[in-house]
Structure formats: structure tokens, C-alpha cells
Design a protein around this nucleic acid. Structure first.
Lengths: 255, 255
DNA sequence: GGAAAATCTTCCGCAGCACGGAATATGATT
DNA sequence: AATCATATTCCGTGCTGCGGAAGATTTTCC
């Protein structure tokens, strides 16, 4: 599976990925430094992407930005995403019921990625932004999705974590052994909790969404300030789990 | 400018673009037929994209779908798009004021592409969907953006149109000469109208959004059933133009 | 249930294309 | 005006991606 790759495609994707995290505007030099490739090579790739309007070049500053075609692709992909479209009405219902911020996220490598969000008037906190990322070990959604992975996969994650995990707050879990416990709990009960591990005073509860192949393809989470979340804790857990189950079933999941 | 392209990147982009229009699920065979390339070649490209999780392969049906990484990229790009983010609150304000559906679109080649939409309770009509496309000559947004292009560019469009334009309703403009008039009007007055040209009984009014380089990077449009749109015609035009100007200025446009 | 057909995947040798160093153009900084 | 920083073009070499063909695998049909 890990063979027969077209290297120039991989490089082009790497370039596009630069626009995911960090700036939305990159100069050729900056891309060269980030990718560690010869200037000419990067130049050629970027020119190709620009020619097709996936990037566009500021005529005066010479820097590159996402182009209209990338916007098109993005909105088309999101506008047709099974996960996002199916989940949306359920998320709204959940937000209405709990009166807190609801997030939809996916897991990729070591991070979770926010795909969608529903806010309420009440919820002031919550700096999560659609399109941003966070380390899986520090989030309820990350733990919920990881808990559905195979043991081997979890071990691999823990091994990575041992070298890379950094505390974001005092309560952030950085010890692999501790994470294993959390994942075992999540696997058993079908939900995971983040108790101020990513941000002081912010509590999140998440449950995994599975597709027809029983793979965890995403997670629903509710987040809010501790004083509100503690009060209705049991309700939150029940409703988040129910919402995740509903979405899973809509995606073709059967017990 | 049209030189020094990396062909394998172009092919990979073509593959991704298949997921923009038409199905969200493609079998290898279908891609081969659509692209007209050797099976092996397409297979290699698709495998590369799948390896990086831009696509994912259904393990049983063998078909390919957008993968998590493409979702990530998409939401990151949209979540950081200057145009979309800047426009959003203005669109909401406009929708509130006019009580009709508001669309944000971009122009690419011969089509416009819907980037964002704000609906109201009142607006029942309107089948436009975020991520979908429509021919520029049959839409107010398309005409608004075309009118800002150079004469040479418009001529090129008209030449293409002569062979390709097909009527969508009785009123659709398919005659290049007629389109030129419309564009001249739009250029003069700063807005364009679609009077049932894309769908019977649907009227749209659009104005172009320009960036700091005075390029039309998008358009705002309002659409609704003719009986409502006719009544407040002048108001609609004024407000749409104002909104477009506001967004333009937020993007750095100066007269 | 077995044979044939359709589709997906691997193999491999050849050639074209992408690579990247060096030279040139452009434009900022002093 | 001279220097530096960055972007762009040029061009020969060798590697990489191409694609025909063979081999799996799954589906279809009798």
C-alpha cells in the first residue's frame, strides 16, 4: 500500500497543506524554507498550481494565496460531504437541547480537525474555529476517536506521544499510560471527557461517529465552561452519545 | 505563463475535480473513462491521493470518495478564506434587511460557483446549493463579474458562448450580442439582473466584489420569486450594491 | 458451482519529463 | 549607483512516472 507514489503529486499536496496551518499567504522563499526543496522545484510546482487557479499570485507582492479553484473544490467537497451534511441537522438539534457549543471533528494522524460548529447565544467561551486543529490527546473528540482504533494503532500513538506531547494546561495528559486508561474508559462507555486539558476551565464531552464499516470517521462534542458542564453532566453525556449514534446510523452503521 | 507545467500534478487535480461535479463516489473504471487516460496511470495517481488520505477507498466496493485530509484542507481553506469570512457578516446583514436568499459566488472560466449562502425563513424558492455551479451567462452574479473583465476577456467568453450556450428557460440569453449589451449595462450601473434566465419566475440581482487590485473576485446576489422582487426592485439594487461595496472595502479596495 | 467477464492491482523496461544547479531578471535597500 | 534578496528562465542529465501486459480478485451468468 505504501508504494508506487507519484512524488510530484505528494509535493504539490504538501504545498497546499501549507495553506492549512499557519498563514494563508506564502512567498516562494517561505515555501522553499518550509519544504526544504530546491527553489526551482517548488517554483515549478507552485506555478502549476497557480496556472490551474488553485493558488493565485499577488501580482505586486509575488506571494501566493489560495485561488478560486481551491475555494470551489473546498466548498464543493464540504457541500457534498456525507459526514458533514448528515451531521449538521443533528448537531443543531443537540445545540438547541443543551444550549452549548457543538463541534464536529475528524481525526488525522495525531490531530483532530474541526469540520463544523454550531453555537448558541449563551455560549461565549470556545475559541475553536472551523478548519483549525488540536492534538488528539488533549481533546475529548480525539480520545473518543482514538478509543475506536485497534490496540496496535493506539500503541503507535502512545509511542509518538511519549516524545511529542506537551502540556497545554496543568491538566493535560502527557503520560501514555494515563492516556491508555482514558481510552479504555472511552471504549467501555462510548464517550470521552476533556476536563480542562486543552484550556483552563473548559470541559468537553465527545462520542465517536462510526460508518457502515464500523470505522470511527468523526466525533461529536459539546464544550462549555466547567460551572455549566458539571451541573448537567449526565444529561450531556447521554445526549452526545445519542446524537453520535443517530449520525452513525444515518451513515449506514448497524450494530 | 502557460508553460513549465508538471503534468502529473495537473492529472491529480483533474481527478480531484471529478469529485466537484457529479458523484462523490468514483470507481477506477469511471475515472479512467472520464479522464481518457490509461488505467495504470489513473490507478497510480489515485493510489497516491488515497495514501495521503485525500481520497479514501471503500474496502469492499473499491470505489473512491473524498478522504479526511481533503475535508481538512477544504474546511481550513474555507475557514480562512478572506473573501468568505469577510463577506459572511455582510451577507447576513443583507439577508436580514431584504428577507430574501443571499448568495456569494466566484467566477471560474465559464461558470459561477456558489461559495456561501444565507437563507431566511421567508425564502422558500431557490435551489442553489453551496458548492454547486451555474453558467455565468444565465446568472446575475456571472454577468456582474464578467462585466468587470477586460474587453478582450469578454470577447473570448462571447466566442465560447456562441458554440456552447444552451437555454435553461425561455428567457435565457444565448446570443453573444445580447450578452454584450447586458455586460455594458452592468459595467455602467454596477449591478446585473437575472430575470428568469436560469429558472422560471426566479429573479436575481448581483453586484461585483473587488479586491485591492481592482479585480472582481466575487459577487453578492439576492434571489427571490418575481412577485416579491419586482415590488422592492430599487431597494434590492441599492442594498446589494452597498453590500458589495462594503465587502470590497474590507478587502482593501479603494476607489 | 464453475467458467467467463469485468475490474482492480502489480510488474517492468523504456523514454520523456521533471529535477535542480547555474545564470538571468526583477525589484528592494543602503 | 551598487548591493542584496528574491523570483524566474534555461538547459543537460538521470531518474521517475508512464503504460502495455500479465496477474489477482471480484462479479456475472449459465
Amino acid at each position: 500500500m505504501a508504494k508506487e507514489q507519484v512524488s510530484s503529486i505528494l509535493r504539490a499536496l504538501q504545498i497546499l497543506e501549507c495553506f492549512m496551518d499557519g498563514d494563508t499567504e506564502w512567498t516562494l522563499k517561505a515555501l522553499v524554507e518550509r519544504l526544504g526543496l530546491p527553489t526551482t522545484t517548488v517554483y515549478r510546482q507552485v506555478s502549476t498550481l497557480a496556472e490551474r487557479q488553485y493558488l493565485e499570485q499577488d501580482p505586486v507582492r509575488k506571494s501566493y494565496r489560495p485561488g478560486p479553484r481551491l475555494l470551489m473544490l473546498s466548498s464543493a467537497v464540504l457541500g457534498r460531504s456525507d459526514l458533514r451534511c448528515t451531521a449538521r441537522p443533528e448537531l443543531e438539534r443537540l445545540s438547541e437541547a443543551l444550549q452549548e457549543t457543538i463541534n464536529l471533528s475528524v481525526l488525522l494522524e495525531h490531530d483532530i480537525f474541526y469540520l463544523d460548529k454550531v453555537e448558541t447565544r449563551r455560549s461565549i467561551v470556545c475559541n475553536t474555529q472551523v478548519g483549525s486543529r488540536a492534538p488528539a490527546y488533549a481533546t475529548s473528540a480525539g480520545k473518543a476517536m482514538l478509543s475506536c482504533r485497534s490496540d496496535a494503532c493506539i500503541e503507535e500513538y502512545c509511542r509518538w506521544m511519549a516524545g511529542a506531547a506537551r502540556p497545554l494546561t496543568e491538566r493535560t495528559i502527557t503520560d501514555p499510560a494515563r492516556l491508555r486508561e482514558e481510552l479504555a474508559f472511552a471504549r467501555l462507555h462510548g464517550y470521552a471527557v476533556d476536563d480542562g486539558e486543552i484550556e483552563e476551565g473548559l470541559i468537553c464531552v465527545a462520542a465517536p461517529i462510526c460508518d457502515m464499516n464500523h470505522r470511527a470517521v468523526g466525533a461529536v462534542s459539546v464544550s462549555g465552561p466547567d460551572y455549566r458542564m458539571q451541573a448537567d453532566r449526565e444529561l450531556m453525556i447521554r445526549e452526545v452519545r445519542r446524537t453520535a449514534r443517530n449520525i452513525s446510523q444515518l451513515l449506514g452503521f448497524r450494530e
